[in-house]
C-alpha cells in the first residue's frame, strides 16, 4: 500500500488532486481511495487530502498519518506545524516552488524535489493552480502511475480548453523532473506500513 498526503491551500485543487490520483489508480486496475481532511472550506486556509493506492481492496478509512510521499502545493506550508509530520523514513517530498530542489533539500534537511508548478500553470492555464503539474511530476518521479492514466482521468474531469491546456501542462511538468528517481519497487509497495 502506498499512502500519500497532499497539502495545499483552499482553492489550489487539493481534493481534485487526491481524487485524480485515486482515479488513475483505478484506471490501472488497482484500488484507490482518496478523501479530504474535511474543513470549513475557505480559500487560502491550509488544507490536506489523502490518497491510498493498493493492489488489494482498501478497507481502512483513517487519515494518512505515515505517508511515503508528501505533495505540497505551496512552499510556505513546509513550515506550518504538522505538515511534514509522520513522513516515513526515506519518505519524499514534492513541492511547488521556484527554488531549486538542492536549495530546498539543504534548507529543510529533507529529501525534496521542487518544480515551479504554479508558475508553469500560470503560463499555460492562465491561473496558478499547481495541482495537475505536481501530479504529473509525481507520477514521473515515482512511476507509481503512468502519464497516460493521468491524461485519461483529466479527460474524465475536464473538457474543452481547460482540458487541452492541462494536457499541455502535464507534458511540460513531466520534463521538469528525473523520471524514476523515486521509483517504488513492488517489494517496497507491499511492505509499506499503514497509518497507525
Amino acid at each position: 500500500m502506498i499512502e500519500i498526503r497532499i497539502h495545499g491551500r483552499g482553492g489550489q485543487g487539493n481534493v481534485v488532486a487526491a481524487y485524480l490520483t485515486a482515479m488513475a489508480a483505478f484506471e490501472e486496475g488497482r484500488y484507490g481511495q482518496a478523501f479530504p481532511n474535511f474543513g470549513a472550506e475557505r480559500r487560502g486556509a491550509p488544507v490536506m487530502a489523502f490518497v491510498r493506492i493498493n493492489n488489494n481492496p482498501i478497507k481502512q478509512r483513517n487519515q494518512v498519518l505515515a505517508p511515503a510521499f508528501l505533495i505540497i502545493q505551496d512552499q510556505a506550508l513546509l513550515h506550518v506545524p504538522g505538515v511534514t509530520d509522520g513522513l516515513l523514513p526515506g519518505g519524499k517530498i514534492l513541492v511547488n516552488s521556484n527554488l531549486s530542489s538542492a536549495v530546498l533539500s539543504s534548507q529543510e534537511g529533507k529529501d525534496i524535489i521542487s518544480i515551479p508548478a504554479g508558475t508553469l500553470a500560470k503560463q499555460i492555464l492562465g491561473r496558478p493552480v499547481p495541482n495537475t503539474a505536481l501530479l504529473s511530476a509525481f507520477f514521473t518521479l515515482t512511476g507509481i502511475l503512468s502519464q497516460e492514466s493521468l491524461a485519461k482521468v483529466l479527460k474524465q474531469r475536464f473538457k474543452d480548453a481547460v482540458l487541452e491546456k492541462n494536457l499541455q501542462l502535464i507534458e511540460q511538468a513531466a520534463q521538469q523532473v528525473p523520471a524514476g528517481l523515486w521509483k517504488v519497487s513492488e517489494q517496497q509497495e507491499e511492505s509499506h506500513v499503514t497509518s497507525p
Binding site: M23, Q33, A34, F35, R61
Partner: peptide, 10 residues
C-alpha cells in the same frame, strides 16, 4: 458524512 460521502473509491 465525509468518511463516506466525500471519499472517492471504486
Amino acid at each position: 458524512g465525509f468518511n463516506l460521502t466525500h471519499t472517492l473509491e471504486g
